[in-house]
Structures are given as C-alpha cells and as structure tokens.
Amino acid sequence: MNPFNLFFQFADSFAFIVLSAVGLAVIFGMMGVINLGHGEFIMIGAYGTTLVANAGAPLVAAMIVGVIVTAVFGFLVERTIVSGAAINWVAERTLGRSVIEPLYDRLLDSMVATWAIGLILTQGVRIVFGNSIPQLNTPLGSIQYGGFSYSVYRLVLSLVAVCVLVGLYAVFTHTKFGVRARATIQDPETARSLGVNTDEMYTTTFVIGSALAGLTGALYAPSLTVVPSMGTSFLVEAFVAVVVGGPSVLFGTTLSGGLLGAINALFTNLYGTFFGQIAMLLTAILVIRLLSNGLTGLVETVRDRKVGE
C-alpha cells in the first residue's frame, strides 16, 4: 500500500464528506430543520456552475454564480415554505389569517416538506434542462509520484473543505451575527427579548446553509456527472456525518469527516470500494449507538473530566 495513495484518498474522502455535510449541518444545528432536499440544493449549485461555464464564463466566476443562485433559491424556500412568511403574508391579506405554521423545530414535518421539494427539483430540472447537459472538464491536471498520479483538483477540494470549516468557525465565533445566531439557537425567547430579530437569524442561517450546499455543487461540478438525480449521491454521506458529529455542528462535521474519511480510505485501499462503503456505514451505526451525543459529545465528556481532575 502506497502511503501517498492512502493519504490522497483520505483527503479526497474527507473533503467529500465535509462538503456534503456542512450545509446540512448548519441548517440542522441552528434551526432544527432537516433538509432532505439538501442533495438537490447541491444539484442546483452544480447546474448553475455548469450552465454558466458552458456559456463561456471562466470556471471560478461560474462557481460564484452557482453559489449565488443556490443562496437565492434557499432564500425563496425559506420565505415561502420553511417560515411560510410569504404565503402567510398573502393569506393574511386575502383570507384574513395565516395558513402555514413555520417548520422551525418541526423536525419530522420539515423532513417530509423538504423531501417533496427534492422531488419537485429533480423532476423540474429534468423537464427544463433535459436528462443531461454538456459536462465540464476537471481543471488543473495531475501530479505524478512514482508510478502513480492524482488529480490536483481533487486535492484542492480538500484544502477548500478545511478553509470552509475554518471560515465558518470564524463567522460563528467572531462576528456579531455569529453571537446572535448562537443566542437564537440556545434560547430564542431571551434572544428576542434582548432585541435579536430571531426571524432574520433563521432566514440568514438557512441562506448560509443553502449557499454552502451550492458551493459543494459548484466545486464538484467539474469532477462529477451533473445530472438531475445527482443529489442522492451526497445525501448518505451528509446525514451520516451530521449525526456522527453530534450537536456541535462545525466541530462535529470536522471530526466525523476525519473519522469516516479515514475508515473509508483505509478499507477501500485494503479491500475495495464495497467494503469501504460498508465499513463507513457500520462505523456510523456504532458511533450512534455508543455515543449518544456523537463525537463532539465524547470530546466534551473527556474535556469535562480533565477539567474536573
């Protein structure tokens, strides 16, 4: 087993898990909404990027457009469906009452609603853009080492994944928005009484989560096949990573990306891709069973014990 191969595969797997999960993790951790349409949000980012790049724009510009398109889409979904604000606004003026209860913290209903959004998106994109669109090439070529080579772009992705995590950490700990957002999660009532506009916090969080999903789609557009049903290939890794990570979303996603990425790379290298997948899923089952608060829960327990000594 070549150690470079193993390392590159780990980096690749880590990036895929983290980037798949991070948008979902932000929305779930901050709002208690499980976005089963998460994969389709990623698909929108990928479509935006590919279509704009095909129209002749440089790849990075196309990616930025992909992210913006997904963020705007997320904003619309939040306003009309998740919070119901737009529909209620209309309803209050026509029927004289609001018709939609917000999906915040209605975990299970939010799953069904976003699942339905996913269905509509997949088929809607198929109707509008057809079964396939011209695909992009992977840029940046490859690096050679020994008899092997690895795509530089795939390696860049793992750096981007790390940057995204660091950036989010900075946003949520060192900005005014971050402090307010965390206050809203911990105690919405108190946050409101202290003058935080919690509605706005929810909307912003959802838009950030959507933009992150869009970023994932944009980044993978040149490396994966962009088709209407591509969202499902992210969904499993995303959910597993979020749940394995536990309540502290960013830290948790990092840890589970590390653990699951390592397991996946190791078993894939030793026994092939099938065992890599199965090992990853079984690890997830074991972690959920043994650590009721996920990996971050374990870390906190260990830290508390150390402090207590």
């Binding site: 070549n2 191969n5 092997f148 290939s233 894939t268 891709t273 099938f274 997948q277």
Partner: peptide, 19 residues
Amino acid sequence: EFIPLSVTDFGSTINNIQE
C-alpha cells in the same frame, strides 16, 4: 475490481490500475 453503483470517487481505482 468491482465498484458499487453508488461510488462517485475513483481515486483508489485509478491508483490500482496504475499500480
């Protein structure tokens, strides 16, 4: 090498072929 239908990342497969 047999590859599950859900796999989208072929890094290890490409390495194996090169080896």
